[in-house]
Amino acid sequence: MTDFGTNLVAMVTPMRPGGALSEPGLTRLVDHLLATGCDGLVVGGTTGESPTLTETESARLVRAVVAQTGSRARVIAGVGTYDTAASIRRAREAEAAGADALLLVCPYYSRPTQAGVIAHCVAVADATALPVMLYDVPARAGVAMAPATLAELAGHPRIRAVKDAKGDLFEAMTVMSRTSLAYYCGIDELNLPYLACGAAGLVSVVANVAADRTADLIRAVREGDLTKARAVNDDLIPLTERLMRSGPGTVAAKAALAELGVIPHATVRLPLVEATTS
């Protein structure tokens, strides 16, 4: 867990009108996330609009977040793409920019075989000295990481965790029981059951605006107080529903952060469009 933290946020990427990166927005967002209880910042992941970020922008974001964060939290850089060579470049750039760890999504669109998934992940993990969190998200990638694939990848010395957005709790428990992989829930709607089943922590979109409450949830489960954990979860349900069920989480999280005054604009890049009030 020290490789990544426990209360991780899938951080949005603040942008100015027109789509350029917003340095003031980034500074304020990082300070907000650290003040509200995040101990891991995932930069340039799905919620950070990774498919629209150039390699230069991704490295710039990591560098800026590392400088702002210091030793207060772990910085995990999203480096996965559908192109292994590009993913390796991003991984090396993230390492040079000071990232503490990497988030590596299952390669999307190409729908590789499980052998291809393994070869891709090993190639990226071999490219740096940083610990790697795999990101298993078949709804976006078009292919899932099979349990046997995860078990094989767990043998790599730097592949140490999984962000699970598959939602198969029995499979997650099975892999946890058979490997040393630390599991992180990547579906905010299922944070409580994943934690109760042994997940090491969360990678949360909701934590952009409520990291203090996700921290409370983690703490309650760790202390074995499931009554309190259910109460915290119940309190979070309306916010989680609003952020995760009304459209893309990125759009809703940026709108909420702008409404709270944390970031100056709710700008997203196409093909995403900003939330409307209608």
Score class of each variant (00 low, 15 high):
1 M>G: 10
3 D>W: 04
3 D>F: 11
8 L>I: 13
10 A>S: 10
10 A>C: 06
12 V>L: 05
13 T>N: 08
13 T>Y: 02
15 M>I: 07
18 G>V: 11
19 G>D: 08
23 E>H: 07
26 L>G: 01
30 V>T: 14
30 V>A: 11
31 D>L: 06
37 G>T: 03
38 C>G: 00
39 D>P: 05
41 L>N: 01
47 T>R: 00
50 S>M: 14
51 P>Q: 09
52 T>G: 10
54 T>H: 11
56 T>W: 06
57 E>S: 12
58 S>A: 12
60 R>E: 15
61 L>M: 10
61 L>I: 03
62 V>K: 02
69 T>M: 10
72 R>S: 12
73 A>C: 12
74 R>E: 04
77 A>K: 04
78 G>K: 08
83 D>K: 05
85 A>V: 14
88 I>A: 05
91 A>T: 00
102 L>F: 06
108 Y>Q: 08
110 S>F: 12
117 V>D: 12
120 H>L: 11
121 C>H: 15
122 V>K: 03
122 V>N: 01
124 V>W: 00
125 A>V: 03
125 A>G: 06
129 A>Q: 14
129 A>P: 06
132 V>L: 04
133 M>T: 08
135 Y>H: 08
137 V>G: 02
138 P>H: 10
140 R>S: 10
140 R>D: 10
145 M>I: 07
146 A>G: 12
148 A>I: 11
154 A>D: 08
154 A>H: 04
155 G>M: 03
157 P>I: 04
157 P>W: 01
158 R>D: 12
159 I>Q: 03
160 R>M: 05
163 K>A: 01
163 K>H: 07
164 D>G: 08
165 A>N: 09
167 G>I: 07
169 L>H: 11
170 F>P: 00
174 T>H: 13
174 T>E: 13
178 R>F: 02
179 T>K: 07
179 T>E: 02
181 L>F: 00
188 D>R: 04
189 E>S: 12
191 N>H: 15
197 C>P: 00
198 G>V: 07
202 L>F: 06
205 V>R: 03
207 A>T: 06
212 D>Y: 06
213 R>C: 04
214 T>W: 09
216 D>F: 00
218 I>H: 12
220 A>L: 08
223 E>L: 14
227 T>Y: 02
227 T>S: 11
228 K>Q: 15
232 V>H: 07
233 N>I: 00
234 D>V: 09
234 D>F: 12
241 E>F: 05
241 E>Q: 14
243 L>A: 00
243 L>E: 00
244 M>Y: 15
246 S>M: 11
247 G>M: 06
247 G>E: 04
248 P>F: 11
252 A>H: 09
255 A>R: 13
259 E>C: 07
263 I>N: 11
269 R>C: 12
275 A>Q: 14
